[in-house]
Design a protein around this nucleic acid. Structure first.
Ligand SMILES: NC(=O)c1ccc[n+]([C@@H]2O[C@H](COP(=O)([O-])OP(=O)(O)OC[C@H]3O[C@@H](n4cnc5c(N)ncnc54)[C@H](O)[C@@H]3O)[C@@H](O)[C@H]2O)c1
Ligand SMILES: NC(=O)c1ccc[n+]([C@@H]2O[C@H](COP(=O)([O-])OP(=O)(O)OC[C@H]3O[C@@H](n4cnc5c(N)ncnc54)[C@H](O)[C@@H]3O)[C@@H](O)[C@H]2O)c1
Lengths: 239, 239
DNA sequence: AAACGTTTGTGCACGTTTTCACAAAGGCGA
DNA sequence: TCGCCTTTGTGAAAACGTGCACAAACGTTT
């Protein structure tokens, strides 16, 4: 019951799972579920129950033995730990195909990450409005960032421009970057970088497909069971 | 020099990095670089050189001591190991905002994953053409999958429909799924699942932002250096 | 108030991944 | 051919993440 304050460092693998728990808990709360055991939460999250308990234990001892966890309270604690008690506006660099899809996507703002600005280098795009936000020129990025105290930037430019975009974001004062381009970017020490690379994800799947085929051919086509992505953080279940 | 065949199982963490090396090697080859050391590749990939060598060693002993790796040969070997020697057409479920962006995205087909079909449940969308492909009805998914021997499916439906989409994909014969919805899906044993969740990525960044703030406040605002995402597989560099 | 069934929180063993460190191998020039 | 310089490939150690198993804690029932 001793709810310790966020002094402990939470393992990165746990940090990556907390948002999943958070979403599930929120959904359950909306449906009227007031209490959940680690077993139930684990089932819905597609992970091991012990893992859920260990993950939650980093927040403090908020469960009740013999009963489970209070859903509403847990939602609050996870949000607190993840820093989701207030909004984090983001600035999108690149108003192309992807940038526009992201800007128009409500699930963005709904989760506490409203689009605080969009910038592009193409004069044909500057001035247009996507997702209710007017596209500004890349040169104005510092203004955009400072005006709204933005600390998270999203790179949605072609790969060749990604490093430029990162440099501009950092110069503007952004301290976290989510990079959707396939290019590896370099940033100064102290800046956090997340990466979402579609091609990488597909190529991982291709590898598994390939193995399935090899395995089947290699040993006289038995059942091709036993193959599913082994546990890796931030991947979906495969019951 | 004994190039062993793909009998060894490659660690999942390595599989996730090979596509990054592959892209860099391809780019370097296009620029006329014929040979690279693990050090150079590591620099561009934003990882440790020893890690590069160990990763590549799973493919076989393809380097030359004192010299480095032949770029073209390495590209071939990685492609072979990842199963990229032929195309893997994909089927997209959900022709909304994201589905259309994905279908219209060339970097998809360019990397060996052409859009082999798109399906939706909404009659208003069925029949329209996005990215050069006609949207078919979800009911026809098995036809679409079988006709093109598709084994990879992409879920771009709202979260509430993701499990239905997964079930339909599996029933149609797909064996690998990339899920863009925030919902955790359950699939039969033997099906591979990858997940890309925007909200999770942003929430991880928010956590790091939060920590930065806590750290600065907690101890009389010193330099806020020393903070960057600790090494985690499949995340970008942060030099 | 005691006995019971349930579920948490965590010590511990195990598996995986990262990093170090260096012998072995290759190229090259003398 | 020999020695020197560079760089690989890989054991072994360290760090990290996972899952089992169980004592401790709690609510409930008797
Ligand atoms: N479209 C998709 O579905 C998709 C999916 C996954 C990844 N991606 C990646 O996302 C990125 C963007 O893809 P897209 O399809 O939107 O491309 P796009 O060409 O449609 O849009 C890119 C935009 O970035 C702008 N831009 C270029 N250089 C810039 C700079 N230095 N500063 C600011 N803006 C700049 C361009 O003017 C353009 O508007 C690419 O790296 C792509 O690989 C796209
Ligand atoms: N738009 C984005 O930028 C973005 C970014 C990240 C993640 N996502 C996620 O991607 C998913 C799709 O987002 P969106 O913005 O494209 O939504 P959307 O509403 O624009 O499109 C969803 C499409 O799925 C179709 N659909 C619904 N149920 C279906 C079913 N059972 N089978 C087949 N098709 C069905 C709908 O008819 C619609 O065309 C969501 O889960 C969202 O959270 C979107």
């Amino acid at each position: 019951m001793a709810g310790q304050r966020s002094r402990r460092r939470i393992p990165e693998a746990t940090v990556a799972r907390l948002p999943v728990y958070l979403r599930i808990l929120g959904e359950q709360f909306d449906v009227g579920v007031g209490n959940m055991s680690s077993e139930e939460l684990a089932e819905l999250a597609g992970v091991n129950a012990a893992k859920v308990r260990k993950d939650l234990s980093y927040l403090g001892s908020y469960g009740t033995r013999g009963v489970g966890y209070d859903v509403e309270f847990l939602v609050y604690q996870i949000r607190r730990e993840l820093g989701l008690t207030h909004d984090w506006p983001v600035v999108i660099v690149g108003a192309g195909n992807l940038g526009q899809a992201l800007a128009g996507y409500n699930g963005f703002g709904d989760r506490g990450f409203p689009v605080g600005g969009i910038v592009d280098i193409d004069d044909a795009k500057v001035g247009s409005v996507v997702g209710g936000v007017r596209v500004r020129h890349l040169d104005d990025i510092t203004q955009v960032v400072q005006a709204r105290s933005i600390s998270i930037g999203v790179i949605a430019t072609p790969g060749a421009a990604a490093q430029d975009a990162a440099d501009a974001l950092v110069a503007a004062g952004v301290t976290s970057i989510l990079n959707f381009s396939p290019t590896v970017i370099t940033v100064p020490h102290g800046i956090s970088v997340g990466k979402v690379d579609l091609a990488v994800e597909l190529q991982i799947l291709a590898y598994h497909e390939q193995r399935r085929i090899n395995a089947a051919q290699g040993s006289g086509l038995q059942s091709l069971s036993g193959l599913s992505i082994p546990g890796e953080s931030r991947r979906g279940a495969s019951a």
